[in-house]
Amino acid sequence: MSGLIKSSIARKVVMALSGLFLVVFLTQHFVINITSVIDPETFNSWSHFMGYNPLVQFILQPILIAGVIIHFVMGFILEIQNKKARGISYVKYKGSANAPWVSRNMIYSGLVILAFLGLHFYDFWVHEMTYKYVEFLPEDPSRYHEETVEKFAPFWRTIIYMISFVLLSLHLWHGFSSSFQSMGVNNKYSAGIKIFTKLFSVVIPLGYAFIALYHHLNPITH
């Protein structure tokens, strides 16, 4: 990693590639989640596949975790270096005059997402790991939908998820198109990339928020 940390441009490429990788993951995760609203059967079978396919479990999942770690660790490194580069701060600094809020506060939207990931891991990942590798409970391809809906019974969790999706939206609003600039892409397609970024960063987080709220409002009653 030290070689990567050496050049500012290389650091940005690491940030961009890991960020884009997370964007792809976010999309795939969304497609699975939305089935929990549309068709619980499909949600169960896809979730079961993701949970028990060895390729997903032992190759893709570690890559994903590594991607998240690389992204936020590099985010911290950049933030520390950038703070240092200013040295003495201005008495008056009008950041809003020349740059959008979202672009100046990536570290804060990122930190909220990181905190959310902590809760999200605790909610689902730790639960799964305990189920499979600690308690060695039998495979049950029909449990996922119900478990998911139950998670959203408490109002506080639903609200925390929804607030986090707002911050995710802000993070992507700048981050998605920014990663293309970091990789040297600034050409006739850039206007299109910017439009797509805005659509994506609204539609996907809004969709996630809708799913959380939907399950909160539609509990399973036996």
Partner: peptide, 27 residues
């Protein structure tokens, strides 16, 4: 100097209107 976050502040404040396209080109 710090790393680039692509905020675009430089381009707005540059008295000569140097474009961010140059940064992408340098990358």
């Amino acid at each position: 100097f710090g790393n680039c976050t692509n905020t675009g502040a430089c381009e707005i404040e540059c008295p000569k209107g140097i474009s961010l396209e140059n940064i992408a080109r340098m990358n």
